[in-house]
Amino acid sequence: MLPAKPRRSPGVPTTRPGAAAEHPLAGLFVPSAGPALRWVTRQERELLLVEHPRFQAVFSRQGGQLLHFQPRGQRPWLWCASHWPRVGAIRGGVPVCWPWFGRHPSESGWPSHGWARLSDWQLLGSEVDEQGMHLTWQLQLCDWTVTLEAELGEQMRLRLRTSHQDSEPCRLSHALHAYWQVSDVARVALLGLDGAQGYDLLTRDDCQQHGELRVEEGCHRIFRPGALVQVQDLAWQRRLLVDTRGGANSVVWHPGSRPLTDVRWREALGFVCVEAASCGPDSLSLEPGAEAVLELQARLG
C-alpha cells in the first residue's frame, strides 16, 4: 500500500537532542517498530522517509531523488547539502540527470542536466522483506517515460529505465550523479580507474588515468568505460565500492576551491561525486519503443 500524500506542516526540525550531526536529514527519523514509509515536508520539499531494520533512507518527490542512505551501524553513504534553494535542484544524494547530461547541446536556456531533477515524480509502489526494500518512481514527460527502481538494504542499487513513443529516434544522455559522503575529500583516494581513457572537462582535453585518483584540487573527468571504483577513506577506515559499469561512463567530479551556491566551503569538503553515466560521445539514440537502462550500485569493500 502506498503512503498517503503528506499534508503541509509548519516545518520539521532538522535535528533532535542527542542525534549525530553527520547528515542534515538524520534528525527527521524517530524510533520505529519496523519497516515504515512516512511523508514529511522540509525546506518546502515533500520527502519520503524510509525506515527498515537494515537501513534508513530519504527520497525527495522532486527529482525522485535519493537524498540519504545509511545502513544500520554505519556512517551515511550519501552527502546532501544542508540548505536547498527555494526553486531549483537539490544538491546531494543521487540526482537523476535526464534526458541530457550537462548543458543541452542546442538550447542554451534549458536547465543543466535536464528536467528530471526539477520535476515531481510519482511513487508507483514499494515492496519490503527482511533483506530490504524496493521502491519504484516514475516520471512522464511528453512522449518519454522514465522509471527509477531503488533496491535498498545492506547494499544500494539504482536502475533508471527510459522509453519513448515518439515517431522519430531520440537522442538521450543520462547520469546517476551520486554524491558520496567522505570524511575529507583531501584524504580520499579513488582506485579502479588506472589506465582508463577519458576527457577532462576542466582542461577540455583528453586524459588517461595513472594509478589512484585524488580530487582535492578539483576534478571533472568522464572516463570510458564504466568501472568498479573504490572510494577509499582512510580517516573513516571505510572503502565503498561504487559500480558504474551499468553505464558507458564513470564521471568523477569535485569543485575543489571553486565555490558552490548555498554550500559552505567546509561543507563541500565532505563529498566526492562518482557517477554512472552515458554521455558525450557515448550518448544513446533510441528508436521508437526502445528502452535504455542505466545502473549504479554500491557496497562496502
Rank of each mutant, 00 (worst) to 15 (best):
L66T: 05
L37C: 01
R75I: 01
L49M: 07
R16M: 06
P53G: 10
R38D: 14
F69T: 12
Q70W: 11
R54W: 00
W84S: 09
P76L: 04
G63F: 00
A57I: 04
F55W: 06
P71R: 09
P24L: 14
G64W: 02
G63A: 03
Q56N: 03
R86T: 04
A21G: 10
H83G: 06
V87T: 13
R75G: 07
Q70V: 15
G73H: 09
E46H: 04
S9D: 15
E46Y: 00
L49F: 05
W84E: 10
L48N: 03
H23A: 10
E22H: 08
R86Q: 11
L66W: 01
V87M: 04
C80G: 06
S32D: 12
F55M: 12
C80T: 15
E22I: 09
L47A: 03
H23L: 10
P17D: 12
P10H: 14
S32T: 14
G73I: 10
P71Q: 12
S60K: 09
H83Y: 09
P10K: 13
R72S: 15
W77V: 04
F55K: 05
L47N: 05
R54H: 07
G64R: 08
P24K: 13
Q70R: 15
P10V: 14
G63D: 05
L66H: 03
L25T: 04
L48Y: 02
L78V: 03
R8V: 14
W84A: 09
R45S: 03
G88W: 03
L66R: 03
V30N: 06
R42W: 10
G34F: 07
Q56I: 01
W84N: 08
A89I: 05
L66S: 02
E51V: 04
P31M: 08
A81H: 04
H23N: 07
E22P: 00
W79D: 02
R61F: 00
L67N: 06
